[in-house]
């Protein structure tokens, strides 16, 4: 009799146990089908004919040149993105000027533009059929169907990543520390390197991590501007598409497996940052 009320009692701010279990089961079931199954499929298909087949398919010249190109594109686009992100965050958070909200909207614009449309825009600006693009091709510096176009497309799709991470953190930290350092006679660069940068380093790393994952994996925008020239402008995602369409399943999924591993490492590092440095990140990443 004494334990009866204890069994039936539950806080008014929770749902019935049966409802909770059912909701968890349904949500996790959907996640398993939509999220985890595709991830497992990548590795399953890559290793279908064994480790040896997977590794040798990665060693073929086409795959190797794709890996090299993707690393090169990320090595160019991500630092440029970081420089832009730092400059934009400094400009937006350290000064008061008219049109700030509009500027932020423009920086966010690439998020609401389809990657294919982004590629189209770059082709229409720098393509060989335009006046400017034609002149550049004549000078021997083609942009579209060449490396600069791929870097430009990667920059476009990753444009807001670093700035978006830095701006909220720098707004929260205010300007007092920088102003104090300036009063004590530090130069602008010294203030940036010894006061601002240490304060935002984790947020910067977070933004760079996301930008890198997107730059290495971008498909739509790069598909349009690269021309998909084998061994020259075919990045890893483009090469995956070509191999898949040629029914080279193991080769396509092995290369896809490398990118999937990169995605998992990105997620792991991102989660580690969220746990270890929550107070140094933008508020919406704190758990």
């Amino acid at each position: 009799m004494s334990d009866m009320p204890l069994r039936t009692w539950r806080p008014v701010t929770t749902e019935a146990p049966l409802f909770r279990t059912a909701l968890i089961a349904v949500v996790l079931g959907i996640l398993a089908v939509l999220l985890f199954a595709p991830l497992i499929t990548v590795f399953y298909e890559a290793l279908r004919k064994g480790w040896f087949a997977a590794i040798t398919s990665l060693a073929n010249p086409e795959a190797l040149s794709a890996i090299k190109l993707t690393l090169l594109v990320a090595a160019l686009a991500v630092p440029l993105n970081a420089v832009f992100g730092i400059a934009a965050a400094w400009f937006i958070t350290k000064y008061d000027f008219r049109g700030k909200a509009f500027l932020i909207t423009l920086i966010d614009l690439p998020f609401s533009v389809s990657p294919v449309v982004a590629g189209l825009c770059i082709v229409l600006t720098f393509g060989a059929n335009t006046a400017f693009g034609g002149w550049l091709v004549g000078m021997g510096y083609p942009i579209v169907f060449a490396l600069p176009g791929i870097v430009l497309a990667s920059l476009f799709v990753t444009f807001p990543f670093v700035a978006r991470e830095l701006i909220p953190v720098m707004i929260e930290q205010g300007r007092a520390e920088e102003e104090a350092a300036l009063t004590l006679g530090a130069s602008g660069w010294r203030v940036f390197l010894t006061v601002t940068l240490p304060n935002v380093r984790w947020a910067l790393l977070y933004g760079v991590l996301l930008a890198n994952a997107r730059a290495m994996g971008e498909f739509g925008a790069v598909a349009v501007v690269s021309g998909k020239i084998r061994g020259v402008t075919a990045t890893m995602p483009i090469t995956i598409e070509m191999m898949y369409n040629e029914y080279l399943s193991v080769a396509a999924f092995s290369l896809a497996g490398v990118l999937a591993l990169l995605a998992l490492v990105t997620l792991a590092l991102k989660t580690a940052l969220e746990i270890a440095h929550a107070d140094a990140l933008a508020a919406n990443h704190r758990h």
Binding site: L31, L35, F36, P38, L39, T41, V42, E45, L210, A213, M216, G217, E218, F219, G220, M236, P237, I238, I240, E241, Y244, A252, F253, A256, L259, A260, A263, L264, T266, L267, A268, K270, T271
Partner: peptide, 17 residues
């Protein structure tokens, strides 16, 4: 942590998988 997988996984990889 896994909820963000679609953000991190390249779209071509998701597509063929």
């Amino acid at each position: 942590a896994a909820v963000d997988l679609p953000f991190a996984l390249p779209t071509a990889v998701a597509g063929i998988a």
